[in-house]
Design a protein around this nucleic acid. Structure first.
Length: 476
RNA sequence: CGGGGCGUAGCGCAGUCUGGCAGCGCACCUGCCUUGGGAGCAGGGGGUCGGAGGUUCAAAUCCUCUCGCCCCGACCA
């Protein structure tokens, strides 16, 4: 614990790893590319699950669970799908000591197994829509892995819906992306840009893909959630038809959408500082820690009794820890809880007891304030609300300050190279121009924002007519 | 897959060149003492030196083979 975190300006990616390991969010596992999510990290995931689950259910979705193993033949039914995923799949070939007749793929995503079931369940338009979500693990064989951002096995939710019309599927796709955006901003305090993926960046087998993109502190983009309109591709591959009101047989329209434990990485890289992780109050399972300070038995008794009263009061509404461990001094405890990102700390010593108050410290600003014991519940409530709001605001300002409008390709390359960030530039829609930017700068089109202004312009690469600006950035 | 580095206590490392008691820091355990920003002192536990083979009176150290991991370059949430 006495280890120091590598400062962000020395080595950002080492900082990231240091924070995760030292804050006990996760640890490396014996299996290459796989990680262990420790209680501190899993607590954040549980908060993500809890809130997204509520939002999904409020919009009519239900949870279900489909198998981990997928018959090989299923994977091959949708051409683009298998092409996109085959290289990164793990395959089970032996079971019960016998070579399997048909190899079983460990799911990289569940479209195929789910649509094989939808075929059984969908007969008529009366069976639609089907709005199912599942919380699951998936596996993709990754070469370069990083804790939370890219691991071979990861946790996510995947929604898979079936609809009678294109419009309905499209509406669903956008509804979900909107939920993701709202969740990222209101709960994780991460401002995101919602938009449409270019064809080069879309999901294998989708008609089109929408995403939310966030900016990390190193100004690189991170895709934080995706939502796909799959059209009729999977319905055709699995022959899923329904009879409409007029008695006509039609293929079903599909969507799929997901967010993963990668969101935890986004949270760390959006809000963390050189002292550790900073958890937004709304996704912190433990919101307040009380650190008592005393000298000698008499003070100890007095301080602990007082601290216990404060804890009891706060517990009416919050999850509070009273850190009365004897083997550590207050300074050590301050550092430890800051490392773990607990939003609020209350320091209570003899001086505070005498003044009928305590010192309140916000994790994001590290500012100390003396507050009265009377009304402490309301004080904490207000402070947490304010902190939540200001964290989003701060991140939004950072994103805006590092977003550049650029109309000249030389300048474009210079900014990408020297400053990074989001580049708001015109693009004609030609995949070749997109590929050239990637080859020249490693930046890709993150998405075409929904709130893109209709603005005539010239493509940053080829100079041809463009209808609007897109977001270019280097990405994780 | 191409390039680089590393495997010695839970973690981080020294020792390897030049063979000869397996060490240091942190963490851990016990006791004392401390407590408003990562305390101090004393004592203690903990090792198939990644693995196999070889050379030698003697191998963490020399030789051969092997396994694994990390970092940097082409794909992905």
């Amino acid at each position: 614990m006495a280890e120091k975190i590598t400062p962000r300006n020395v080595d950002y990616s080492r900082w990231y790893t240091d924070v995760i390991l030292q804050a006990k969010l996760a640890d490396y596992s014996p299996v290459k590319g796989a990680m262990v999510i420790r209680p501190n990290g899993y607590a954040i995931w549980e908060m993500i699950q809890q809130n997204l689950n509520r939002m999904f259910k409020e919009t009519g979705h239900e949870n279900a669970y489909f198998p981990l193993l997928i018959p090989e033949s299923f994977m091959h039914k949708e051409a683009e799908h298998v092409e996109g995923f085959s290289p990164e799949c793990a395959v089970v070939t032996i079971g019960g000591g016998e070579k399997l007749e048909e190899p079983l793929y460990i799911r990289p995503t569940s479209e195929t197994i789910i649509w094989s079931m939808y075929k059984k369940w969908i007969m008529s338009y009366r069976d639609l829509p089907i709005l199912i979500n599942q919380w699951a693990n998936v596996l993709r064989w990754e070469l370069r892995t990083r804790l939370f951002l890219r691991t071979s096995e990861f946790l996510w939710q995947e929604g898979h819906t079936a609809h009678a019309t294109y419009d309905e599927a499209e509406e669903e796709t956008k509804l979900i992306l909107n939920i993701y955006k709202k969740f990222a901003e209101e709960f994780l305090a991460i401002p995101v840009i919602a938009g449409k993926k270019s064809d080069a960046e879309k999901f294998a087998g989708a008609l089109h893909t929408y995403s939310i993109e966030a900016m990390m502190q190193d100004k690189k983009a991170l895709q934080a959630g995706t939502s796909h309109n799959l059209g009729q591709n999977f319905a055709k591959a699995f022959d899923v038809k329904f009879q409409d009101k007029d008695g006509q047989l039609q293929y079903v329209w599909a969507t799929s959408w997901g967010v993963s434990t990668r969101l935890i990485g986004a949270l760390i890289m959006t809000h963390g500082d050189d002292n550790g992780v900073v958890i937004p109050p709304k996704v912190a399972q433990k919101q307040v820690v009380i650190v008592p300070i005393w000298r000698g038995e008499e003070e100890k008794k007095q301080v602990l009794a007082y601290a216990d009263e404060v804890r009891t009061e706060l517990r009416k509404e919050f999850n509070v820890i009273l850190d009365d461990r004897e083997q550590f001094k207050p300074g050590y405890k301050f550092a430890e809880w800051e490392l773990q990102g607990i939003p609020l700390r209350l320091e209570i010593g003899p001086k505070d007891v005498a003044k009928d108050g305590m010192v309140l410290v916000r994790r994001d600003t590290l500012k100390k304030d003396f507050v009265a014991k009377a009304g402490i519940l309301e004080t904490v409530r207000q402070t947490l609300n304010l902190m939540q709001k200001e964290m989003l605001e701060r991140a939004r300002q950072f994103q805006q300050q590092n977003t550049h409008q650029v109309d000249d390709y030389v300048e474009f390359k210079k900014i990408i190279e020297e400053q990074g960030g989001f580049l708001n530039s015109h693009w004609c829609g030609d995949p070749d121009c997109e590929a050239k930017v990637k080859a020249d700068t490693k930046a890709t089109i993150r998405n075409i924002p929904f709130d893109q202004k209709a603005e005539k312009g010239k493509c940053i690469v080829c100079g041809k007519e463009s209808e609007g600006r897109v977001i270019f950035a280097k990405a994780y």
